[in-house]
Amino acid sequence: MTSTPVLERPASPEGRRPRRVRRTTPRSTLTRGAGLGLGIAMLWFSILVLLPLSAVVAAAAEGGWGRYLSVLQNDQTWAAVTLTVSQAVLVTLVNVVVGTVIAWVLVRDRFWGKRALDVVIDVPFALPTIVAGLVLLSLYGPNSPLGLHWAFTPNAVTLALAFVTLPFIVRTVQPVLEELETDVEEAAASLGAKRSTIFRRIILPSLVPAITAGAALSFARAISEYGSLVLLSGNKPYETEVVSVRVLTFIENGNTASAAALASVMLAIALVVIVLLDVLQRRVSRRG
């Protein structure tokens, strides 16, 4: 097995077929039907997303850079931004791990109550967020049956965000895991790879696109969460007040321009995170 015997070339497909002449890249591959589809998609996207977003950015930009600076230099606002972003990052990281584990368990393991768990995962989606806040308040509030008085502390923010963002990664990873072919893992095993190596080098790279997609959704939802937080966090300035609550305060005080400025800052943060996740995904899923 150590020698390199030279064999006759098989008349393999690539041997017979002359290398395809490289065509110049066509300017567009759209057929008429696809063009129509793209048109509808763009129109819909513009009306629903681009237009309102540009309106916010335009409103914020009216005040010029000065407005942004004054909004961000406000300590209370800055505290809300850092709290929101750090909590969103934290729960997203937790979800990446826990969500993947739950998806794994739901797909690969067999146990009693699996179907029930599969349904229950969606409850945070199904529940109106204010109800979610109420549920959490009864558990962790002043009359906590668990003895955990987490309401009105930063822990409450983590808890509420983790609750409402749980399903994202589970639901994006689960179908991908279901579609993975087990013979690929068996091939790796017969080549000598341990379970942990198979997971890290074979399974994980296939899951990374789904995990990052779920993470983007989870992060986006976390920085915009309002309903489940208003009751639970107590909205204490500098401590538990999140951006969405801060924006509402600006609006209630008639300070729409500041609200718009803060909104466009969050928009920028969301964009940066989504782009970062995309870059990360391309890196990791290519490495193996």
Binding site: D183, V184, A187, A189, S190, S285, R286
Partner: peptide
């Protein structure tokens, strides 16, 4: 276990590591 048998296995549907 399969890891320790030093057996080469080729599957009908290739089982390539696609990434």
């Amino acid at each position: 276990p399969a890891q320790k048998r030093n057996v080469g296995f080729v599957f009908q549907h290739y089982a390539v590591f696609k990434h």
